[in-house]
Design a protein around this nucleic acid. Structure first.
Length: 111
DNA sequence: AAGCTGACCAAGA
DNA sequence: CTCTTGGCCAGCT
């Protein structure tokens, strides 16, 4: 085991804890894991490490609140529709009031 | 072994 | 505000 697999496990664990109507960024998760320089690894973990359907990846966006991965979902609109279904407002592939919906694991989880 | 890619981020022009 | 550059870590060719 090992081999960085724990990194993914931590990422998934955090994403699963994201409440509805909220969203977080790759960098925030990376920072929470202590790899704030590894924001790419977080997103990479989602799509390259065997994409786990149990994970609400639609609640994870980039630091701008933009749905960068919408085209990687079942359909290019799945991500947006899901977020909207949770009470969020998406405009031009970006979350409106992003800072208001932003869910920081370091604060919400209070490490 | 070396180089490229990636669901990113921050800073600079 | 938009575009470009450098940096980051890990896996793949």
């Amino acid at each position: 085991m090992k081999k960085g697999n724990e990194f993914f496990n931590d990422v998934y664990d955090v994403v699963r804890q994201i409440p509805e109507g909220r969203a977080t960024s790759y960098g925030a998760i990376a920072a929470y894991l202590g790899a704030k320089r590894g924001a790419r690894m977080v997103g990479w973990a989602m799509g390259n490490s065997g994409y786990h359907p149990n994970i609400p990846a639609h609640r994870v966006v980039n630091s701008q609140g933009e749905l960068t991965a919408r085209e990687l979902f079942e359909t290019p609109t799945t991500m947006q529709e899901r977020l909207e279904s949770e009470g969020l407002v998406i405009k031009n592939n970006k979350i409106q009031n992003w800072k208001h919906h932003f869910w920081d694991p370091e604060k919400e989880l209070q490490l």
